[in-house]
Amino acid sequence: MNTKKFALLGILAGLGATVAINAARADTLQDIKTKGVLVVGVKADYPPFGSLSPSGENIGIEPDLARDLAKGLGVKVQFVPVVASNRMQFLEQGKIDVMIATMNDTPERAKVVDIVHPDYYASGYNIMVPKTLSLTSWSQLKGVPVCAIQGAFYNKEVAEKFGAETVAFTGVAEALTALRQGRCNAFVYDDTAIEGKLQDPTWKDYDMPLQSQDAQPWGIAVRLGDTSLADYISKSIISWDKTGLILSLETKYGIKHAAFAVQMHNKYK
């Protein structure tokens, strides 16, 4: 076989694969029912929303919601652990069918994946500070070095709105070490995650004295074009709000009711 033919064949094979992927994408809901498995991307490092139990089982509010979705379809659920930097790619590549991974619903992300409405949860950002630093308002952060995580969307706002000097690190562990070493006097992070940290006795000298800022809705996402699956999830979210499932999961995992969850329950009950 000469090279030209070989190249042509390669291109055809590539085209064929693309068509196959598109065809597969067209009816994900049907595929899930046929396979009998709903593959859901969840966090494995973000208690109480998604983490692993000592026996390796996915536990938390989001895995519980995913189990409810699978139950409604009459299929089994399979979990794939995701992190913020790969969750949208996993969804696009078909490694997961649904993503419930503490993702904020933003217009930029809605261009890449289909974020199902209504949003299922909302959280804001807050700061963790040493108890010795008595803060009463966000405006006191002006000129204060504040540790942050590189890439967090609120870093810009903390700098622009409150005039804080953000010092952003690549990971949570580095930022927390820097907070302990006094390289910054506060750590800006998701309020839900700070609440989790503060339950840890090693952080007993720190607290979260201010009101959370800028509550952002969290969205469950599917691939663009998976409309039937999105419709199903949308109906499920409304029924969760109606029955108060999310509120009872918050109680189950020992966190306070988010204002958003209460509001949605009142809207749909």
Partner: peptide, 13 residues
Amino acid sequence: KNSLGMSQPLIGG
């Protein structure tokens, strides 16, 4: 000590 009266390391990033 920094301006807030909190201690911070002598040498910065």
